[in-house]
């Protein structure tokens, strides 16, 4: 038995759907954010797995860029959450619905 690439892809798919379920079910904006980070990480796992099995560095380079985007996204998103909390004193996304039609 050897570890083929399918094992990593299945693990990554599982983590991705856990992230989807978390985003759709949780009501706390910070936890929704953490689930988005989880989904980004599962995509990273796929990129690294393919890069390692193909013997090419480009996939790992893209993981580097994804980390950059995730860091800036986390900074801006958490600043938005703080700004919302300052105005409405809640981070429950059921109460933040002024843009809802």
């Amino acid at each position: 038995m050897t570890i083929t690439i399918e094992y990593y892809l299945i693990l990554s798919a599982f983590m991705f759907i856990v992230g989807i379920a978390g985003v759709l079910t949780r009501r706390n904006a910070i936890i929704v954010f953490m689930c988005i980070e989880l989904m980004l990480n599962s995509a990273n796992l796929t990129l690294v797995a393919f890069s390692s099995y193909l013997g090419s560095s480009v996939g790992q380079l893209f993981v580097f860029f994804v980390m950059t985007v995730a860091a800036s996204e986390a900074a801006v998103g958490l600043a938005i959450i703080i700004a919302i909390f300052r105005n409405k004193l809640t981070v429950n996304i059921d109460d933040i619905n002024i843009l809802k039609w």
């Binding site: 950059t68 985007v69 860091a71 800036s72 996204e73 900074a75 801006v76 958490l78 600043a79 938005i80 703080i82 700004a83 300052r86």
Partner: peptide, 15 residues
């Protein structure tokens, strides 16, 4: 992008 995110987070965090 990191520079823009830093500035954006600072501005959003201001009172």
């Amino acid at each position: 992008l990191l520079l823009a995110a830093t500035i954006g987070a600072l501005i959003l965090g201001k009172k």
